[in-house]
Amino acid sequence: MSIYILCLILFSVGLYCVLRKRNLIKIIIGIGIMEYAANLFFILIGYRQEGRAPIYAHDQVINNMVDPLPQAVVLTSIVLGLALMLLLVAISIRIYEKYRTFDITKINRLKG
């Protein structure tokens, strides 16, 4: 149980980072932490006691496997997160070229 709580605390750390940090890059890192925490949570859910890696092998006697589905899900999710990170970093590079600052509170030409 405590492990799930810790995972959600990690998620909150990421959320805090996105909310309170001013630097664009730190916000991106915060999003990364959040995604990491979400994936971790998913994997933790798939854990079964005394389970081994969900790889099918002819020659071994398999008593218990951990759930393979979350692992597939997380693989996909990591790839999505990767694409997102790439996009965010590329955008922030361009933002720096235009705005000359990484401070999110200064990048607010669109308001009202």
Partner: peptide, 14 residues
Amino acid sequence: LQKLTNGVLPTYIV
């Protein structure tokens, strides 16, 4: 309401 929409990202997430 327009004053509330100040253009700063964390505001929106909040």
